[in-house]
Simulated scan of single mutants.
Amino acid sequence: MKNFANLMKQASQMQSKMNEMQEKLALITVEGVSGAGMVTVELAGKGEMKSIKIDPKLADANEMEILQDLIVAAYTEARRRLDEKTKEEMQKVTGGMNLPEGLNLPF
């Protein structure tokens, strides 16, 4: 029973650390940039887009397809950076323990 009690204590501590990590991640922002800085997307910690900046030179009706591609590229880069930060924070919480593929905590 002592091992079970220790296991429950560790699970409780990990849950507490996960909650702290979620709060910390909610406060971070990351940027994705494309088109040599012509489009910048900012994401909050859970992936929601907070802002987008577009160089006025791209506001040409003939350049809409390029603009759309650059927005997607900037968002993709920001999301990749956010995923990296989340993974780094998870490593801190889990002590480097590799979680099973597909177990995307905390989301």
Score class of each variant (00 low, 15 high):
V72E: 06
E20M: 13
K2R: 09
A61C: 07
Q22T: 01
A61M: 08
P56R: 13
K24D: 13
Q68E: 15
S12R: 14
R80G: 04
E77I: 05
K9D: 05
M21Y: 00
G32T: 10
L7A: 13
L103Y: 01
I54R: 14
K24G: 00
V72N: 06
L82H: 01
L7T: 04
L99K: 02
S51Q: 12
L58M: 13
E63H: 12
T76E: 09
K24V: 03
R80V: 08
A61E: 14
K57N: 15
A11W: 05
E101G: 02
E77L: 05
L25H: 02
L67I: 10
K57Q: 15
I28V: 13
R80E: 08
A44C: 04
L25Y: 02
Y75P: 01
M18T: 00
L58W: 07
E89W: 01
A78K: 02
T86K: 00
A11V: 06
L103A: 06
L27Y: 00
K50G: 05
V30A: 10
Q22H: 03
Q10I: 05
Q10P: 00
S34I: 06
L27Q: 12
D55T: 09
L7M: 13
D69G: 13
T40P: 09
L43A: 04
A74T: 11
N3P: 04
M21K: 02
A59C: 12
K50I: 14
L7Y: 08
L43R: 02
V41I: 15
Q15V: 02
L58Y: 08
V33E: 12
N19M: 13
A73N: 07
P106S: 04
Q68H: 07
M97G: 06
E101M: 05
T29W: 00
L105D: 01
F107I: 01
M97I: 11
G32M: 10
G95A: 06
M18K: 00
K24L: 07
K2Q: 12
K53Y: 12
G35V: 13
A26L: 11
E63R: 14
K57E: 14
T40E: 10
V30C: 10
L67V: 13
G95F: 07
E23S: 11
S12T: 08
T29H: 06
M49A: 14
L105A: 04
Q10A: 10
L27S: 08
E77N: 12
K24R: 13
L70N: 05
I54E: 15
E77P: 05
